[in-house]
Design a protein around this nucleic acid. Structure first.
Length: 854
RNA sequence: GGAUCUGUAGCUCAGUUGGUUAGAGCGCACGCUUCACACGCGUGAGGUCGAUGGUUCGAGUCCAUUCAGAUCCA
């Protein structure tokens, strides 16, 4: 096995068998929208697992005659790459800097981050492209060793000029067709990263908290006690809310109450989202504690009283809606404080005023975090760009669910994750990010005579100008000198959410609008393989874009891989220190063995990292080499293969016919399963047949293959061996590309990967009953058992034995009696029908030859 | 709270529209250097299919309830 990977990869590259034939028509093409790995990220056995599963399908489709479009791009438009470039070169991006075409990074990064070079966004992107080339090499080497049949000429980077162009083009088209828009609205905000965050990037984490209970009072001095986990938002309170059917608060709806500490009068409202079971059943609405507050604020037309700023602190100015001296004094205790300190301050004030109506009730509750952040998200009002995704529009939501139903999901149950997600959306897709690295939002705003931007009339570039960077290029029709001047323009400072670009991988890989001829041949793609953790992001956003840009699904099939767990069934992660570096198993067991492990797992099934499974794969591959050697030693050649245009009359022995009849059924079933993306099942069936072939059939026919039963019988076995091998090599080729091609090249022309997938109908010329092989194998096992139980060598001669079974089974054994005698070194085998009472084959009265005692 | 998946041999997993006696590999036990293969070969032991109830001539498979584990959504 050792060395096959390198040798055959060289051959495949020379023979260009993975090159896409761009003259193929759409119906001949099978196109794959492969996940672009983060090259600057770490290699993981999970990569080998899921990419192999895709490759197995790609190789199958190629053998089925499809022209496979199988590109692989690189995702370098994101935080991991940004950080790596910063640290590697000692640079930082400052989008306001002009591009310096002669810029060279420092030889060594400065020790202190304050001394790092500040460079333009374009210079930063150029460094990123330089650096990731090295990282990509590591991945490409791994993927090549693993045998991925990728067409490496079809590649892209998610930050390169073409991807930025595609991303900006798609954005502009969505803006022009009103599928994207800008709005000033409350949005989830991460105070650490200082950026807006989309719903898809949320993660709910269980955190300890407490309910604080304190009263609001009405004109008559009656108290109504509310319970809240966020008392610090009290000065932002705009209303109280209870469920419309809650008996306890009926009399209060429509009336006003006054807040404690700050003396602000707020109305009591009714809304179905108020949960009577939660706390005291009546809640404060504050602008804004969470997205439910936003919903109430919008639907109940409440005023905005926002106090928390983008850095997560309460504003230093005392708000004008707090009018009493007492209230303004109290607010001074919060001014400028972080959310955390403000909470402590409010609780102290409540305590001092004896307003806490109960001991704080400690609870654990779900708190929303940015998936990469470690502080709870706040809700901050800001101007952002959005893409319509059905979150605010039932018709569009239904349309997107319907798109999901046009896609064949593998496995099928993954569709419910998609539908759960779409149905749970509570707003449009926020796509602007307040970061510097990424694809710039290609927009400028005109400034009025006071140099204030007019956000409602953004200036858009023409598509032939793309890619643009509004931070360093002037708006069309303006000079750079007018930037920031009254009557001039300002550039949009934000970049696009990375998913806004990744959602376009089919368009990017298919060279949308760059090569319309190619695009029409590959789009919509046939397959999107990906992990189930990014259904709500990558998968969904791709559906959204294809829907608005092309009025279609982006692909017709999706293959969702499971995750790799460590042998204790824990998720592998760097922090747990249980990550396996892919090179180890590849070196230890070989690529075919690793692929076997991956291809044994069904789509969607989380799978343990199992070395034992790789050992089995290795053993299978080696066995394939050995049994092939045996067949060729028996004089088997290409001419002996029975197939289309060869009627198989040469196969005269019932045992041989039985093997091929079994093979025919395996070919049929494996093909069907493969077509349904159940490659694991196809492999399993093929493997079972293969072991029956080597352990039983080959052992039975050895003597005949040497010519012991004459030329005709020998010709029959040669044809059977050749045909079985020919089919087996092709059936195994997608999973074990190296071993199968190695053998293929010993006796055939070209590569097995350029050969066609076997067809059951090619074996129609052979008539036989599979049961013959089963019966003879059963007799063989029984005779072996007799020797094993007598603890003699398998070579020991059997002087005589009696074999009984049903008429049918005995006939089968009789038809291969000479093979069975030779394989078991039996002199006399008496065959007796026992009738239908005991149809099973059984062996009795075994008389063994004397053996030398040790 | 809503949804989905998984419970089958010591371990990892197959098991198709319900159909004889529930399979494989690993591990284990016993034996064998057998002329393709010790990177090997042969044989064997091992399971009340998570639990309960139902449908059926017949249930690992379908239905209901339930227990356990995992994931997604809110």
């Amino acid at each position: 096995m050792e060395g096959l990977e390198q040798k055959l990869n060289t051959a495949w590259a020379q023979e260009q068998i993975f090159h896409f034939d761009d003259s193929a028509t759409r119906d001949q093409v099978y196109s794959i929208d492969t996940p672009p790995p983060t090259a600057s990220g770490s290699l993981h056995v999970g990569h080998m697992f899921s990419y192999t599963q895709t490759d197995v399908v790609a190789r199958f489709k190629r053998m089925r005659g499809k022209k496979v479009f199988y590109p692989l791009g690189w995702d370098d438009n994101g935080l991991p790459t940004e950080r790596r470039v910063q640290n590697y070169y000692g640079v930082r991006c400052d989008p306001t800097k002009p591009y310096d075409p002669n810029y060279a990074p420092p030889e060594k990064p400065a020790k202190n981050q304050r001394d790092w070079d500040m460079i333009s966004r374009r210079n930063f992107i150029e460094l990123c492209e330089t650096l990731t080339v090295e990282d990509e090499k590591v991945f490409e080497d791994l993927f090549t060793t693993l045998g991925l049949s990728v067409d490496w000429r079809q590649t892209y980077r998610t930050i390169d000029d073409h991807s930025r162009t595609a991303s900006q083009r798609a954005f502009l088209r969505d803006v022009r067709s009103d599928n994207a828009y800008t709005a000033e609205a409350p949005t989830l905000w991460d105070v650490t990263f200082r950026t807006a965050v989309a719903q898809a990037e949320l993660e709910a984490k269980e955190r300890p908290g407490a309910y604080y209970r304190y009263p609001f009072t009405d004109d008559a001095g009656n108290e109504v006690v509310i319970a809240t986990t966020r008392p610090e938002l009290l000065p932002s309170c705009v209303a109280l809310v209870a469920h419309p059917e809650d008996e306890r608060y009926q009399h209060m709806f429509g009336h006003s109450v006054t807040s404690p500490l700050f003396d602000v009068e707020v109305p009591v409202k009714a809304h179905t989202l108020a949960d009577p079971e939660k706390g005291s059943g009546i809640a404060m609405i504050c602008t804004f504690g969470d997205m439910t507050d936003v919903t109430w604020w919008r639907e109940l037309n409440l005023p905005t009283r926002a106090l928390i700023g983008r850095e997560g602190r309460f504003t230093g100015d005392t708000p004008e809606w707090i009018t009493t001296e007492h209230g303004r004094e109290n607010y001074q205790q919060l001014a400028g404080k972080t959310v955390h300190s403000a909470k402590e301050a409010v609780v102290e004030l409540l305590q001092a005023a004896d307003l806490l109506r109960a001991e704080p009730e400690k609870i654990t509750h779900a708190v929303h975090f940015y998936e990469k952040g470690d502080k709870p998200l706040e809700v901050v009002t800001s101007r952002q760009w959005y893409i319509r995704n059905g979150g605010r529009d039932a018709d569009r939501r239904d349309q997107l669910v319907e798109r999901g139903r046009k896609i064949t999901w593998n496995p099928g149950f993954m569709r419910s994750r998609y539908e759960n997600w779409v149905e749970g959306l509570n707003g449009d897709w926020l796509i602007s990010r307040q970061r510097f690295f990424g694809v710039p939002i290609p927009v400028w705003y005109p400034l009025n005579s006071s140099a204030e931007p007019d956000y409602d009339h953004p200036i858009l570039p023409e598509e032939d100008q793309l890619p643009v960077d509004p931070a360093s290029e002037p708006a069309p029709g303006f000079a750079e000198s007018q930037r920031g001047e009254p009557g001039g323009f300002m550039g949009e400072p934000d970049v696009l959410d990375t998913w806004a670009t990744s959602s376009l991988t089919p368009q990017i890989a298919g060279k949308w609008e760059r090569d319309p001829d190619l695009f029409n041949r590959v789009f919509p793609f046939d397959l999107r393989p990906q992990g189930h953790d990014i259904i709500r992001t990558w998968l969904f956003s791709s559906v959204v874009r294809a829907n608005s840009l092309h009025d279609t699904v982006p692909w017709t099939n999706t293959a969702i891989s499971g995750w790799i767990l460590d042998p204790d069934r824990k998720k592998m992660s760097k922090s747990k220190g249980n990550v396996v570096i892919p090179n180890e198993p590849l070196e230890q067991f070989g690529a075919d063995a690793v692929r076997y492990w991956a291809a044994s797992a069904k789509l969607g099934a989380d799978t343990a990292y199992e070395i034992s499974q790789m050992k089995i794969g290795r053993r299978l591959a080696i066995k394939l080499l050995n049994v092939s050697k045996f067949a060729f030693g028996m004089g088997v050649t290409e001419e002996h293969v029975v197939g289309s245009g060869n009627d198989g009359v040469v196969i005269t022995e019932p045992l041989d016919q039985a093997l091929l009849a079994k093979l025919r059924s395996v070919v049929q079933q494996a093909t069907d399963h493969f077509e349904n993306y159940d490659y694991a099942r196809a492999l399993n069936l093929t493997e079972s047949f293969f072991w029956a072939f080597t352990d039983d059939y080959v052992e039975l026919v050895k003597d005949r293959a040497y010519g012991a039963q004459g030329e005709q019988a020998q010709a029959s076995v040669r044809a059977t061996l050749a045909t079985a091998l020919d089919n087996l090599l092709r059936l195994f080729a997608p999973v074990l590309p190296f071993a199968t091609d190695e053998v293929w090249r010993w006796w055939r022309h070209g590569s097995v990967h350029g050969a066609s997938w076997p067809q059951a109908s090619d074996l129609d010329g052979v008539v036989g009953a599979p049961a013959v092989l089963d019966a003879v194998a059963e007799a063989l096992t029984s005779l072996r058992r007799a020797k094993a139980e007598a603890k003699v060598k398998q070579r020991t001669e059997i002087l005589s034995a009696r074999i009984t079974g049903s008429e049918h089974n005995i006939d089968a054994v009789r038809s291969a009696l000479e093979d069975l005698r030779a394989a078991t070194k039996s002199q006399v085998l008496q065959l007796e029908s026992s009738g239908e009472e005991s149809p099973e084959i059984s062996v009795t009265d075994v008389s063994l030859a004397e053996t030398d005692q040790p």
